[in-house]
Structure formats: C-alpha cells, structure tokens
Design a protein around this nucleic acid. Structure first.
Lengths: 142, 142
DNA sequence: TTAATCTTTAGAGTTAACTCTAAGTCAAGA
DNA sequence: TCTTGACTTAGAGTTAACTCTAAAGATTAA
C-alpha cells in the first residue's frame, strides 16, 4: 500500500507543494512513481520524511539534509560521515537548548517585571522591588 | 559615554550592517545621533539590543519585535500587551523545548544505529540488535 | 460518462532577514 | 594637514524556504 502526495503531506504536517519542492531539491530520491507518473509514498518514505523533519526542525539547512540523503543513497562506505553528522547535530541541539535556557530566564524576568507594572499601572517597578533590579543586572551583564 | 555602531555590533554579536537594517525597520527608535549624524549607542540601548536578541533567538519575527518596541515607546497604557507578549513567548519557548526533546531522541537513536553500523561496516544493525528496531518503532510511530 | 478533485510540470512570485555597494562624510593618529 | 578607517544614506542583490499559478493529465464517486 502507498500514499498519494496529499496523503503523505497530511501525515507529516507539510503541504504537497512543499513535498514537491523537496523532491525538486533532491531530498526525496527514494520516492517512486506509478506507471502514470504519480508519486507513491511508501511507509518507509514516510519515515524518511520524519527524519528530514527532525533535521529541519533542529535547524539543519535543506542543503545539508540533502548531503545526508546523498550519503544514504551512496551506500555503506558513507556510514562514518552519517554518524558524524548526527553527532554534530546532537551537539548543535544541546548548544541551542542552553541558549534557550538563558533566553527563558530573561523572558521570565520580563514577565515578573510587567506583572508588577500591570498591577500598579506604571513602570516604577525597581523602586517597589529593588531585588528585581539586581536580577536584571545579573541577567543582562554579559 | 556611548558606543559607535561598530562597537555596539561587536558587543551584541551582530554586524553594523544588521544594526542599520534593524534601525531602518524601526526596531531601534531609541538610538540617538550625534550632531554630525553618527549613531551613539548608550548602555541602555545595548540592553534593548539584548532583549531584541532574546526575542529573535527564541523565534519571534522582527515584525512582532517591532510591535513590542512600539508598545514600549507608546507608554504605560501598553503594559498589559507587553506582559501578554512575554507570556506567549514563554509558552512558545516551552513548546519548542518539548519538540527539540523529541528530535533529540531520534538523533540519539541514529547515533546508536550508525555507531553499530560503523563498527561492523554494514547496515544490518537490526539483525544484530533487535532491541534497536523496537526503539525505532517507538520513536517513529506517530 | 461525467464532474469534481487530485496530481503533474515548469516556472514565477513571495517573505524574512540579511548583505553588500557606492558615493560621500566624519574622526583619530602621525 | 593628511591619511586611514569607520561612519552615513539609498538602494540593489542574495539566500533559504517556501508558495503559488497555469495548463494538462489521472482518479474517484455518482
């Protein structure tokens, strides 16, 4: 059994347009066509799409995703490159997570700040709560 | 004391080009100019830049960042909108974090998979390690 | 069998966020 | 004072990733 481009698109949360675009960019060399020229997505193709989504969702550009797909098509000799790519991507994700953690601290500070401001209808927050000023200094020092 | 556009750029890890672009887009209405027309960034301006970086770094588009800056310039009446924006952004960051966590699981799986493949020089990983196949099914089921 | 809906292609258009260029102005050191 | 490098503007160009259009062919339900 196989899926049409529209069905496949729905399954992975993309549009058929986007899947055609990916195909044009060489990201879907594994997708076969029916005798009448329609793309037929297999279960395995859907898994490929999920890996592509995973890589794209963690910030890998389509060009590098294509590089990975090319390696996969090339065969067993490219296993080290592929392993390396995922190790690098793991590093990248963990760096991003750390960055987001820092951003989240600033956002939490702003929420506290504006909650106090909203309660009193003005921005004299630090006069009312000097500890928040200390926190601000800590968060924005670097 | 104040900083030139180049100094400010270096301090926040952007280029002078980018800061001029942000200015043109209306993101830096607070930056004053010297009598001869050069931008002079104050310490407070640098803090603004850091907040902009925080919002941009967590995926808020420049247009919405401009909306926030506009609210700040408008005065105390926009405090509720600003509070709401940061609450929404916090939600967004936490959703992203959860998504990245899921992606990271897939990446970790791929690392295990390719480590085994690299060790044996071929991709018969699931024959050697059926438990990994179970893990794959779990990770890619949805 | 026919209408509605889907799919095909090539190729044009869009959006966000830069990134660079040119031609001129300003500032700091020798 | 002169030179070097940083700054100014307006505006053009770039990149990534879609997003859409048009015209034609395929599939499906009535």
């Amino acid at each position: 059994m196989s899926y049409s481009i529209g069905e496949a698109a729905k399954m992975v949360g993309l549009t058929a347009h986007t899947l055609r675009f990916y195909d044009k960019e060489g990201l879907l060399p594994f997708v076969k066509k029916t005798s009448s020229g329609l793309r037929a997505f297999t279960e395995s193709d859907i898994e490929w799409l999920k890996i592509i989504e995973c890589l794209k969702g963690t910030g890998l550009p389509l060009k590098q995703i294509k590089q990975y797909i090319d390696w996969c098509m090339e065969g067993d000799t490219t296993i080290p490159q592929r392993l390396n790519m995922f190790i690098e991507q793991k590093k990248h994700v963990e760096e991003q997570k750390a960055k987001w953690e820092k951003h989240l601290e600033k956002i939490n500070f702003k929420i506290k700040y504006y909650e106090d401001a909203a309660q009193h209808g003005n921005l004299n927050v630090f006069e009312r709560n000097p500890k928040l000023l200390e926190e601000k200094k800590r968060l924005f020092k670097d």
